[in-house]
């Protein structure tokens, strides 16, 4: 089976542009979801009265609905009731909405991994709740949270494959167009897979290394 190398070379710039767009959107989504997740876990930690339930509801809603529907709702649905967002804004908002709850769960997992006796210890020397967080919980939660956050980042990067559905010229969209227009299916799919491998494989390896390092630190403790 002959691979049409000329075709591949000619469309590489398109793919490159799409890959950068994907990375850009993923980055925006990741940063926003980290902030949302952090905010949510602080609210849950401080047990702020009304907000606590709001945060819990948000987390359940975003974890139990698919990103595709969230995007469609944001892009097509909201537009009809007067809130018109650009495709890229929708993508980032959708990713942030979905990712925020995953990040919040990561932070929560980290906070809960700090043993009760450590917390009682901190309290018994008179630390305030915020001081407890800063000096006792965060440093110890760190090692548990980081791998989890890393996994979420990779997850969000993969989820960007969905944003093509709302007319963003990302990798999936480009592939679909090319298949439709030129019927060079094999070549288009090949570059698609390679593009994702290039983006995600290094991160995955990094994450595995990170997890191993953290596990060593834990046992060292």
């Amino acid at each position: 089976m002959a691979i049409n190398w000329d075709f591949i070379i000619s469309v590489l710039p398109l793919y490159e542009k799409a890959a950068w767009l994907t990375l850009k959107l993923a980055f925006g989504g990741i940063v926003a979801s980290l902030l949302i997740g952090l905010l949510c876990s602080i609210i849950l930690y401080q047990r702020t009265k009304g907000l606590k339930w709001l945060v819990k509801a948000y987390i359940e809603l975003s974890r139990n609905t698919p990103l595709l529907i969230q995007l469609f709702f944001l892009y097509y649905g909201l537009a009809k009731v007067g809130v018109k967002l650009s495709e890229q804004t929708c993508a980032v908002v959708g990713l942030a909405f979905l990712g925020g709850s995953y990040m919040a769960e990561s932070f929560r997992g980290g906070i809960e991994s700090v043993s009760k006796s450590q917390i009682e210890l901190g309290l018994s020397i008179g630390l305030s709740k915020m001081q407890l967080m800063r000096y006792v919980i965060l440093p110890q939660a760190f090692s548990v949270t980081i791998p989890s956050l890393g996994a979420n980042c990779i997850f969000l990067l993969k989820e960007t494959s969905i944003v093509g559905a709302i007319a963003i010229a990302d990798l999936m969209h480009v592939t679909q167009d090319l298949i439709g227009m030129y019927y060079q299916t094999f070549e288009a799919l090949l570059i698609l897979v390679i593009a994702y491998l290039i983006m995600i494989l290094p991160l995955s390896v990094l994450l595995t290394w990170l997890e191993r390092k953290v596990r060593y630190a834990e046992f060292g403790n």
Partner: peptide, 20 residues
Amino acid sequence: WQEIRQKIGMVFQSYDLFPH
């Protein structure tokens, strides 16, 4: 309690120190 705990010192059974 923050103030009180400065005046009441407690040592627990689990000899936990802050590991970090």
